[in-house]
């Protein structure tokens, strides 16, 4: 199944959408490049390190050293997010590769006016992962996915991760405070890659209700995490 340049020229790059928006990352949780590629959110003070916002413009000018540093900052978050959506190590590694290489290729597209570099990178990663999981589902992998879904959620699976537990723990706790429907609406969409229409079908809810649950869920999460920060 290998063709040298076997791309579909009809498809635009970057999946159906390209990331454009974001906001500044939480400053108290700024990345620390000294941790190398094992960096995960949850530590480091502010202002004393180079962050992704400074590195990405250098990368856009072809600076490979800057890319190496950026890799150290974003590879964990990119890989983790992709794996959270795809739930398959081999596929996740492939998609993470695509994303990280695309990051190098298209760094010039990043517009700081529209949000933080990390937000841009993770939006790119999320969209790629969601594209992949949707085409996999379309290709008839529903049963396998359903079987996997019966297993414990990956929040427990990632116990191997020693760093970044603080932010994860807060997010997990805050997600627990959502109502069941808010929680399901948000996580089925974001972590499982379902469209809101699919979420509505799975939860047997009208579309409008699903959108409301998603909104309420995110707002409650924001309040909860704001209190935590």
């Amino acid at each position: 199944m290998r063709s040298e340049f076997g791309a579909d020229p009809a498809r635009p790059p970057g999946g159906p959408t390209a990331p454009c928006f974001g906001t500044n990352p939480v400053r108290g949780l700024a990345p620390d490049p000294r941790r190398g590629q094992n960096w995960a959110p949850g530590g480091a003070g502010e202002g004393d390190t180079v962050d992704a916002d400074e590195l990405l413009p250098l990368v856009a000018r072809g600076d490979q050293k800057a890319f190496e540093e950026l890799y150290g900052l974003v590879s964990g978050p990119v890989y983790g997010l992709v794996r959270r959506v795809l739930r398959d190590s081999a596929q996740s590694e492939e998609v993470a590769q695509e994303v990280l290489l695309e990051l190098w290729r298209t760094a010039a597209r990043y517009d700081p006016a529209r949000g933080s570099a990390l937000s841009w990178v993770l939006t790119l990663a999320h969209r790629r992962a969601v594209d992949r999981v949707r085409s996999a589902r379309a290709a008839g992998e529903r049963e396998r996915r359903a079987a996997e879904r019966a297993e414990p959620p990956p929040f427990d699976q990632v116990a191997e991760e020693v760093e970044g537990t603080l932010e994860r723990e807060w997010v997990r706790r805050c997600l627990e405070r959502l109502t069941d429907l808010q929680h399901q609406a948000v996580t089925l969409a974001y972590y499982d890659g379902y469209t809101y229409r699919e979420v509505a079908r799975r939860l047997s809810l009208p579309l409008g209700t699903v959108k409301t649950r998603m909104r309420d869920g995110l707002l409650r999460l924001r309040d909860c995490l704001g209190a935590a920060a």
């Binding site: 890989y79 983790g80 997010l81 993770l122 995110l218």
Partner: peptide, 12 residues
């Protein structure tokens, strides 16, 4: 969503 994303971080 950035918070949700970062919470999933694991070493590559």
């Amino acid at each position: 969503t950035l918070r949700l994303a970062r919470a999933a971080s694991v070493p590559a």
